[in-house]
Design a protein around this nucleic acid. Structure first.
Lengths: 211, 211
DNA sequence: CCAATTTTGTCAGTGACTGCCACTTCTGGC
DNA sequence: GCCAGAAGTGGCAGTCACTGACAAAATTGG
């Protein structure tokens, strides 16, 4: 309640005046609370920027968990992302993405923070993929002997590829329709699909069973 | 001169007491200068952490620029990384990696900053790949029609994959020999090589011409 | 040895963030 | 209604990263 109000006001102020030009005190006053109270709801000034993003990450992790265990990681990532994109309000997401882009562009610090956040996400998703990989001991691994560390590195790379793709997408967001962005995601996923079937899977195979 | 001394002292202190427990004033005193002077050499407290890393990035960008223009991006990345790994002092790099790992583990802030830095690198390398792609108008693109934005997203993804791989590698660095790490890189590169030849290239093809 | 330039220290100030304590507001049981 | 305890809030003082302005060295070049 209070948390949401503070968050909304903060982002509004950031978009207007810029992040660096807005003090925590400004935000607190706008929300009708003291600075001290702001820091009770958010550990840092920039935490307000990730309230919504974090919620969406939980959705992504959920969607990923719902994929069948024996699916190739790359395919799981692609499908989970599709599910996620279906479950969010497109207009709201686009709107927010543009607002954030404006805030980002004016403040190197926010940009930095945003990128760091993406990396944490990367780690979480990577760990989830690793768990799923371990939980399903027989995949196309009969012909692929690799140490656990190898697999972790590979999985992390796959996640890195996907998140870098999303980052680039967000930074290119103009007034194009979402339809256009979705096509781009699909193109990218197909173009850089790992050659090894244990990771990349076969895109054409069971795609009909999804939707 | 002064810059290097401050940097070395700072990292030493960070490794001893921890990043958060070391104030800029501590570092400045240790180096025999004033706090103000510290900030003349480094814009922020954490900038000292990237002095060496930045130098290595320049090496990587250089190695990448030296690759033939018509080489597939994935292959260029792999080869440039190999060149880079050959040109650095292995012991020194390993030593530093371990020190940094210790510092990272104790401070979420440093971790965050490190990850953000990696993202900036990602962007720079991605941009370089994009320039190279544009500079060489005929590749395997005859059979691959994609908008410029598509390519940028794809290239960014490839870089994301590589950097995520390196991050994961660094976080796993134990007392294994570097030989082991190198093999891991090769395995990962091969396993997630993009299926499309315009991006992934053919690993076996001209690998003899390299070394 | 002097003048111009560069480097450094001092100081005051801003803004993010924290710990501490007092104060208000809610809550459930009598 | 009342009251004890819990939860939320504000005020305040303090730390630390970082900045601008100016003066005091230190360095350089002639």
């Amino acid at each position: 309640m209070v948390r949401e109000r503070i968050c909304a006001l903060a982002i509004e102020l950031f978009a207007e005046r810029g992040y660096d030009e807005t003090t925590v005190d400004d935000i607190a006053r706008a929300a009708g609370v003291s600075e001290r109270t702001f820091f009770r709801y958010f550990g840092t000034k920039d935490e307000v920027l990730f309230l919504h993003a974090d919620a969406e990450i939980e959705l992504l992790l959920g969607a990923l968990s719902a994929r069948p265990m024996d699916e190739a990681p790359w395919l799981s990532l692609q499908r989970a992302l599709e599910v996620l994109l279906d479950s969010v309000d497109h207009d709201e997401v686009l709107q927010r993405a543009r607002t954030f882009k404006r805030i980002n562009e004016r403040s190197p610090h926010v940009m930095t923070r945003q990128l760091a956040h993406a990396s944490v996400v990367q780690q979480r998703v990577g760990d989830l993929l690793w768990e799923r990989w371990c939980a399903h001991p027989d995949r196309g691994r009969a012909d692929f002997d690799a140490a656990p560390a190898d697999i972790q590195v590979i999985l992390r790379s796959l996640v890195g590829a996907v998140l870098a793709m999303l980052n680039q997408l967000l930074s290119q967001i103009e007034d194009e329709p979402l339809e256009h962005q979705l096509r781009l995601v699909r193109t990218a996923f197909d173009a850089i699909r790992p050659g090894h079937p244990a990771f990349g899977g076969f895109p054409g195979g069971d795609s009909e069973t999804l939707r």
